[in-house]
Design a protein around this nucleic acid. Structure first.
Length: 526
DNA sequence: CCCCCCCC
């Protein structure tokens, strides 16, 4: 948490009525005046802390972006004097970033960048209605909510896009989990809140963004909130789904957006935003406060409080449009599907892609908790003793069966005998990649994939035609797969080792594999 | 004082 100095003025005495002054005397910035630590912090702040390819959270929120928050000294610049909204006394215009519960005599001059619809609620604690707005000035942004009477008073007054003087609100600690606004605090309108439309509508920024390049979205964890800017590549038809939680139907529209990082990503719009979307392919959209989801590697989903601006008049939009109309239109785009370190949609577990050398170097499978990883490797050797075992043929039993003296196969677990067993693979294979070697254990499903035959078929073949059997083994050797594995620590004669079990294997899709390699190369930022 | 943000 960033250190914050609070100065509470308990009393002051007016020595002389000087009227309204820009400043009195020769005030100095508080931090510098404190000396020592304060100066050190300032010097640190001047260091180039920003690394180009890294996507760092802004301040201590989980809001990600490329821009640093507004520097503190901007706050002083924002301190100006406002025309009175109440007649008589002039009020100091306060920067939004300076609002806190410790000070309530302020007026902000802010643009409404978003206004929600009126929402009605009823729960065990009561019922009511509310609306909320996002307020922006050059220092920052804040959410403000009007409940019940204040909903009636201010809903029509506040219009999206307009600039207002606002004062006398309550300042509460923001509930970050419910907000995509970057502020420690949020406002609620009170009975004596004053809101007045500002004559000068131009001096407040339209919106503030912290764009994350589409290629960097994989670095953002699921459920975080980001801003993105991209060119609309595809507009999918409006569809309707039924919400699992509310059982209510809701409109949905998927867009595919792209940017010059040569990544495409799906952006889902909901409800009215989905219905009203009418922007054609080739236009730039800037989207603020969208949710990052892990579907298909990474995708984006609009909240009802997310906002979209079509072809905004900002540098990023102009350069993207230039890029797209020039070359981008005919380029190919990567997605974040199946990238190393992404979350597997199937299991929801983190499955890092590892090289075989990394397994050893990083001690994978040498800790209490199992590790999961994927790796691309080639089978170089299949151990032929114990390639399969005779298993109980009963559904989902799989217990090893023993042949009786009368030729029946006995299962201890089922307490039954069967005329013949069902063979199941328990292969141990040696795999290699360009970095090293490992032993993997595989069971029936994966064994079938590797051999292209059931263990029963292979067992039969070995009995009938030894050479044909060896041909199958040889055919499976030197094949390459993407292996999905679980690593668990085990002990053998007092020696700890990593027991690596293959949970699934897929053959190499060369198009996909090439894309992944290109992504890896791009990640070096060359 | 709401706080759900949906699907595959």
């Amino acid at each position: 948490m960033k250190e914050r100095r609070i100065l509470i003025v308990l009393n002051l005495e007016v020595l002389e009525d000087l009227g309204i002054q820009e400043k009195i005397g020769d005030p100095v910035v508080l931090e510098a005046a404190v000396g020592g630590q304060g100066q050190q912090q300032q010097q640190q702040a001047q260091q180039p802390v920003h690394q180009p390819r890294q996507v760092a959270p802004i301040s201590n929120t989980n809001f990600y972006g490329n821009n640093k928050p507004a520097p503190q000294n901007q706050l002083q610049q924002t301190m100006k004097l406002a025309p009175s909204s109440t007649g008589g006394h002039a009020a100091a215009i306060y920067p939004i970033e300076g609002l806190s519960p410790y000070q309530n005599k302020w007026t902000i001059k802010a643009r409404v960048t978003f206004k929600s619809e009126i929402k009605h609620w009823h729960n065990q604690r009561g019922e009511g209605k509310l609306f909320s707005v996002h307020l922006l000035d050059e220092s920052g942004e804040i959410k403000a909510t009007g409940f019940n009477d204040q909903c009636d008073s201010f809903y029509e007054v506040l219009q999206e896009g307009q600039v207002y003087f606002i004062s006398k609100c309550r300042v509460n600690i923001a509930k970050k989990q419910f907000s995509n606004i970057q502020n420690e605090y949020e406002l609620s309108f009170e009975r004596d809140t004053e809101i007045e439309k500002c004559e000068d509508q131009s001096s407040v920024p339209q919106e503030r963004y912290n764009f994350v390049e589409l290629g960097n979205v994989s670095q953002i964890e699921k459920d975080n909130t980001i801003d993105v800017i991209g060119v609309v590549k595809e507009v999918h038809d409006l569809s309707e789904i039924t919400s699992k939680t509310t059982q209510k139907p809701i409109s949905k529209r998927d867009l595919t957006i792209v940017d010059s990082s040569q990544y495409s990503i799906r952006l889902t719009l909901w409800g009215k935003q989905a219905q009203n979307f009418s922007t054609d392919e080739g236009n730039v959209i800037a989207v603020k406060g969208v949710k990052v989801s892990d579907f298909n590697g990474r995708s984006l989903s609009m909240y009802s409080s997310s906002t979209m601006s079509v072809n905004p008049d900002i540098d990023e939009a102009h350069s993207l449009k230039g890029w797209y109309d020039g070359s981008g239109k005919s380029e190919n785009f990567s997605t974040h599907a199946n990238i190393g370190g992404s979350l597997s949609a199937a299991s929801g577990r983190k499955e890092d892609r590892k090289t075989l050398a990394q397994l050893k170097d990083e001690g994978i499978g040498m800790s209490e908790q199992p590790d999961y990883f994927t790796t691309k490797a080639t089978i170089v050797f299949i151990k032929q003793d114990n390639i399969s075992y005779p298993a109980c043929p009963a559904e989902a039993c799989n217990k090893k069966v023993i042949e009786d003296s009368d030729g029946q196969w006995r299962c201890e677990k089922c307490d039954k005998s069967y005329p013949k067993p069902n063979h199941r693979y328990i292969m141990t294979i040696s795999v290699n990649d360009h970095t090293g070697q490992a032993w993997f254990s595989t069971f029936d499903d994966v064994g079938k994939q590797i051999m292209g035959k059931t263990a029963d078929e292979l067992f039969q073949l070995k009995e009938e035609n030894e050479q044909a059997y060896l041909d199958v083994i040889n055919g499976a050797t030197c094949t390459t797969f993407n292996f999905r594995c679980r690593a668990k620590q085990d002990n053998f004669q007092g020696q700890a080792w990593a027991y690596l079990v293959v949970l699934g294997a897929t053959t190499i899709n060369f198009t996909q594999a090439s894309k992944e390699l290109i992504e890896l190369i791009n990640a070096y930022g060359i």
